[in-house]
Simulated assay, not measured.
Amino acid sequence: MSGSVLIAAGGTGGHISPGVALAEVLAEKISNFGFEAVYLHSLVRNKDNPDLLNPPCTVLWHNVPQLGGLKTIIYPFLFLFPFIKTILLFHKLKVRAVIGMGGYSSLPSILYAILFRKQLYLCEQNCVPGKITRIFAKFSKKIAFSFPLTEEYSISGKTIGNPIRKRVIPETLNIRQNENLHEGKKNTVNVLVLGGSQGARQLNQMILKTMENPEIASKYKFRLLTGTSLYEETKNKSDGNAEIISYANDMKPNYEWANIVVARSGAGVLAECLVFGLPMILIPYPYAADNHQKENANYIESQGAAVSIHSTSDDPTRLVQILLGWKDHSEILREMGHTSLSLSNVNAAYQTVSYFFSDKV
C-alpha cells in the first residue's frame, strides 16, 4: 500500500501519548507496514505538549472548535472551514489510512476517512468507550482496546494494552522497587502522587492531611507532582516534609523511585504504572466523561493491582487506613507489584500497529 497513514491524536494527553507511541513504531518501520509516511494530526493548543515538542514524525496542526455550549447551533459552520482545509491537506499528503485516538479533535480525520473511503482504525483507551468510538465503531476496520470494556458495551475489537512512549518504558521489566522491602526493617516506602498535567487539588490536599498522621510520616516519603497551576498553592500549605514538584517531562525516574502510586485513573497513567510493576491507590476523577475513570479503577482493582477510593472530598481517612494497613506488610506491596506487572504490555504500541496492518506485514 502506498500513501501515508495519519494518527489523529489531538485531545488531551491521554489521547496524545498513545498516539505518539504508535507514531514512533510507524516512523521506525514505515515501509514494513506498507506506507510511505506517517503524520500526527493535533490541535494547535497542544504545541507545548511535551510529547509533541520532539515528535517522531511531522505534526499537522488544526484548530477545530470544541463542540458544546452556546456554539452548538453554529458548530457546523465553525467546523466547515477547518474541515475543508483538512480535506485538501490530506489529499495532498495522500492519506490512505487514519487511526483515531478519540476525542472531538479526531473528528475531522475520521470524517475524512469515511467520506473518502479510506481505511479507519480506532484506539479506545478506557473501559467505557468514548463517544467517538461508540459512534464510529461501525465505520472502522479494526478497533484496539487498552483495557476490557465494561459489560454493558458490545463493540468488536481486540484488547491489547495502552501504547506507551519509548522514553517511559523501563530498561528492565521487574519490581525491584518493592522486592527490597522486608518486614521488621525500617524501610522507607516511597509514595508518588500524580494528579495529571493540570494537577488535582483534591489529591494534593488529601496527601498533605495524610502526612499529619505521625505513623504515616515515619514510614512513608511522599513526592507530589502537583501540576503547574497548583504548585505554589500546595508548596505554601506543605510543612516541608513532602517533595513538591510542579511537573516532570521525564517520568521514568519518578516511577523508578516509587514503591506506591496515588493517582487518578486515566488510562495512560495506569498503563505506565503497570509496566513499572507498581501497586496503586486510585482516586478516580468523579466528573470524567461517562465516569470512565471509575470503571478504569474498578478494573485494575478487580485484578488485584490497586485499591480505589471513590470520593469527591479531600478527607484523608480512607487513604490513612490503607497506608497504615500496608505499613508493616510489605508482602502486600510485593504481591500487588507482581500483579501490576502481569497486567502490563510493554509492546502494546507495536502490537497495535501490527494488528491494524497485519495484512501488510
Rank of each mutant, 00 (worst) to 15 (best):
N187P: 08
N187D: 15
N187G: 13
N187Y: 13
N187R: 11
T188V: 14
T188Q: 10
T188N: 07
T188G: 01
T188M: 11
V189T: 13
V189W: 00
V189P: 00
V189E: 02
N190H: 15
N190Y: 14
N190T: 09
N190L: 10
N190Q: 14
N190D: 10
V191N: 01
V191I: 11
V191S: 02
V191K: 00
V191Q: 02
L192N: 03
L192R: 05
L192E: 03
V193E: 10
V193Y: 03
V193D: 09
V193I: 15
L194Y: 09
L194K: 08
L194S: 03
L194M: 15
G195H: 02
G195K: 04
G195M: 10
G195I: 05
G196A: 05
G196S: 11
G196D: 10
G196R: 09
G196M: 04
S197L: 12
S197E: 10
Q198S: 14
Q198T: 13
G199W: 05
G199F: 03
G199N: 10
G199Q: 06
A200T: 05
A200Q: 06
A200H: 01
A200G: 08
A200V: 07
A200R: 06
Q202D: 06
Q202R: 14
L203C: 03
L203P: 00
N204I: 06
N204F: 05
N204P: 13
N204R: 09
Q205M: 11
Q205I: 11
M206K: 04
M206L: 12
M206P: 12
M206C: 09
I207W: 05
I207T: 03
L208A: 04
L208K: 03
L208T: 04
L208C: 04
L208H: 04
K209F: 06
T210M: 05
T210V: 11
M211V: 04
M211P: 00
M211D: 00
E212Q: 15
E212Y: 01
E212P: 02
E212V: 03
E212I: 05
E212T: 08
E212N: 12
E212S: 13
E212G: 12
N213F: 00
N213P: 06
N213K: 07
N213T: 13
P214L: 11
P214I: 05
P214S: 11
P214R: 07
P214V: 07
P214Y: 06
P214D: 04
E215Y: 13
E215F: 12
E215I: 14
E215D: 15
E215Q: 15
I216N: 05
I216P: 09
I216F: 01
I216Q: 07
I216L: 09
A217M: 04
A217I: 02
A217N: 10
A217L: 10
S218E: 14
S218K: 15
S218R: 15
S218Q: 14
S218Y: 10
Y220N: 04
Y220H: 09
Y220D: 03
K221A: 06
K221T: 09
F222K: 01
F222N: 01
F222R: 01
F222E: 02
R223A: 13
R223P: 01
R223G: 07
L224H: 08
L224P: 02
L224Y: 07
L224T: 06
L225H: 07
L225E: 05
L225Q: 13
L225W: 05
T226E: 07
T226F: 03
T226G: 10
T226A: 11
G227W: 00
G227Y: 04
G227S: 12
G227D: 08
G227R: 08
G227P: 09
